[in-house]
Design a protein around this nucleic acid. Sequence first.
DNA 1: GGAAGAATCAAACGAACGTTTGAATGAATC
DNA 2: GATTCATTCAAACGTTCGTTTGATTCTTCC
Lengths: 209, 209
Amino acid sequence: MASPNTRAQILDAAEHLFAERGFRGASVRAITDLAGANLAAVAYHFGSKAELLAAVVRRVVEPINDAQRTRFDTLLARTPEPTVTELVEAFAGPLFDGMRAGDEGGARTSRLIMRILGDPAEEMRAWTGSDEDAVRERYLTAFRRALPDLSPEELWFRMRGILAVAAVDRVEVYNRQLPDCVSPAVGDDARRWAITFLTAAMSAPPTGT
Amino acid sequence: MASPNTRAQILDAAEHLFAERGFRGASVRAITDLAGANLAAVAYHFGSKAELLAAVVRRVVEPINDAQRTRFDTLLARTPEPTVTELVEAFAGPLFDGMRAGDEGGARTSRLIMRILGDPAEEMRAWTGSDEDAVRERYLTAFRRALPDLSPEELWFRMRGILAVAAVDRVEVYNRQLPDCVSPAVGDDARRWAITFLTAAMSAPPTGT
DNA sequence: GGAAGAATCAAACGAACGTTTGAATGAATC
DNA sequence: GATTCATTCAAACGTTCGTTTGATTCTTCC
């Protein structure tokens, strides 16, 4: 029984297990087992475990980056001076769109993004290209125009805050039961709450000296 | 040459390496080497690698939790109805106080907290006690009183946002150079920026239907 | 149907892993 | 000085790791 696309199944399994257990915690054997493939398939299709990780991360990051760029373009095509709300929506929105079905409500992608952000390991940092830098800088200058009173350092801090909220978004923070509030965020709720949360945060007046 | 306190040196080294490489990425050998101790010292002093992790996490989390509780008590001793700003300051402040000298500006503790929050592994979740739950719930009800219009679900989302910003706070999010803004946040800047950021975020009106 | 290339497979490689062991060392008590 | 207990040590345990190998299957095209 030959699978139609071993490569894609390995990518899926690796995305799952890298998010769940981290790069070093997810063994090649566990990945190929979950994918229903042979152990040697990773070396054959990707070269090494590190290159597999890079492929997984690229597959997650690229659509997000593309969406951020196109939404930035359509935004500036409409108005030369976008508001903070519009910029937050365009920048943060794609971070939530990437969380699709079969993703345990986005927790898996959230976890993967979190690992990407937090892991200083070489393998986790080998994926970025100049595209990510370019998009990020365009938003940065647009935000600076919309928030002229903010120092560059504080603005930078706030942009990282956006990524932080998106990353932790749907991860179970505590292992205990939720106090008495009900099910975790479903569907678009988390996304809309995040936009509200982040728009208010980005719009805050500069921190006084 | 007998070290005065092998146990503490192992805890320091483990905190460093667990933050830097994760639980599975930090080997017992690397930890004992960094601590200048023998390989078997971990088993002798802590029983196992997992119990060492629990001890490390406890040492980081407990002071934060204690500070959150005492600041909550002094706050309510002064006024029965604290403002959102006061609550954010009391809850988020201790998350930044834990980042001391020799911590690379807090990046190490940040990373460790991030791993604790994001890692679903059994070993990472074995530390929490009822103390953390109790403090968290007290803040939750206080926030609910200060923000009566917010649904419990959205309030819960926002409280996780506080943890998110604190966790990602000083982690280098991008691996490239900062665009043109200068050094990363130093000293109390990040803490004050975070309070500003989070107070505005928490005070945002409820997300419309 | 047979040659050719891509893909998959079982098996093995050395290295690194967490843990255990039993002897060697240190300091304190009698 | 001998005894005792806590601590440190080098060495080895079996397991799992990422990767490599060489043969085997599947697919494609002539």
